[in-house]
């Protein structure tokens, strides 16, 4: 039941000297401004399930405050990208860094990087929050209790303080009147908003959204997307979201990455990707999506 990252090969034990490389197909669409140190960076991250490679030497850098949308066909590895960042699964090769620290490795003897132990992983993991497609609220707790549970039992916050903060967050997501409701008494959209509040309560630096509207009836998507919009506008939160909501990605994201077969096939600003896609596969995907709508 533990979720520690798998150990990469010995060749990566001196990764402190490795500088991030830029893959050729990324060179044509990098974010402009003077690049501050990335908050999250993936360096040649590879993950396999048996013979199937789901993440293929992935390189990705996310600057603080950036809002990145990840789109692509199913099976391309989009969700896996989020899951390995959230340490729900390990990686086979490569390095993931969050806020300047490695997620998968820690400094060992002699300055070499060794596979991270549980304490290190937990420390770095605390900077990341995630909202899931199937909400995953704790069914035996009310909305308020869901939001205070982790701050009290993981951060050691006093219950009164946690309650105050939870109340603010639930107000923020528009559920000020539903504190004492159990998940089974809330609609899908409401549950997802509680899930967002719950993740925010841990004050993450990076928020991951894994297809958070895919399990919702169409009329409930709006309320969740509005909350995400609000978060983006009012707080300088770094967000990484896997989504099928092209319209939302277009209007909200700073950068859009088109994922294909475990790699970022093409990336750029929403205007670049949605209006002037360069790669063939990107075009094919976007037109297929347009067809479906």
């Amino acid at each position: 039941m533990t979720s520690s990252a798998s150990t990469p090969p010995a060749a990566f034990s001196q990764l402190s000297t490795l500088t991030p490389t830029v893959a050729p197909h990324e060179a044509n669409a990098m974010p402009l401004s003077a690049a501050p140190a990335p908050l999250v960076s993936f360096k040649e991250v590879t993950k396999r399930y048996g013979n199937f490679t789901v993440l293929d030497k992935l390189d990705l850098n996310i600057t603080p405050g950036e809002k990145v949308a990840i789109i692509g066909p199913s099976g391309s590895g989009k969700s896996t990208l989020l899951r390995v960042l959230m340490t729900l699964e390990g990686i086979d090769e490569g390095l993931i860094e969050v806020d300047g620290e490695s997620l998968t490795h820690m400094p060992g003897r002699g300055g070499l990087l060794v596979p991270a132990n549980d304490r290190h992983i937990r420390r770095v993991r605390g900077k990341i929050g995630m909202v899931f497609q199937s909400f995953n609220l704790f069914p035996h707790m009310t909305a308020l209790q869901n939001v205070i549970e982790a701050p009290v039992h993981v951060l050691g916050m006093k219950t009164a303080e946690a309650r105050e903060r939870a109340a603010d967050l639930l107000e923020l997501v528009g559920l000020g009147s539903k504190f004492d409701h159990y998940p089974s008494q809330l609609s899908g959209g409401q549950q997802q908003r509680v899930a967002i509040a719950r993740a925010l309560a841990m004050r993450p630096k990076v928020m991951l959204f894994d297809e958070v509207t895919s399990a919702l009836d169409p009329e409930l998507c709006g309320e969740v997307l509005n909350v995400i919009r609000k978060l983006g506008a009012e707080h300088s939160l770094t967000m990484l979201m896997v989504t099928h909501q092209m319209g939302f990605a277009r209007e909200f994201a700073d950068r859009v990455c088109f994922f294909y077969k475990g790699q970022i096939h093409e990336q750029g600003t929403p205007a670049q990707i949605f209006e002037h896609p360069r790669e063939e596969r990107t075009c094919a995907f976007l037109s297929a999506v347009k067809e479906a709508n």
């Binding site: 899931f132 549970e149 841990m202």
Partner: peptide
């Protein structure tokens, strides 16, 4: 399984996760 995943995302230790969730 989603309960485990949510608990990991909220950075619960394995013991606290078992006890509370």
């Amino acid at each position: 399984k989603g309960q485990y995943e949510a608990s990991v995302a909220l950075n619960f230790s394995a013991f606290t996760r078992f006890r509370r969730i």
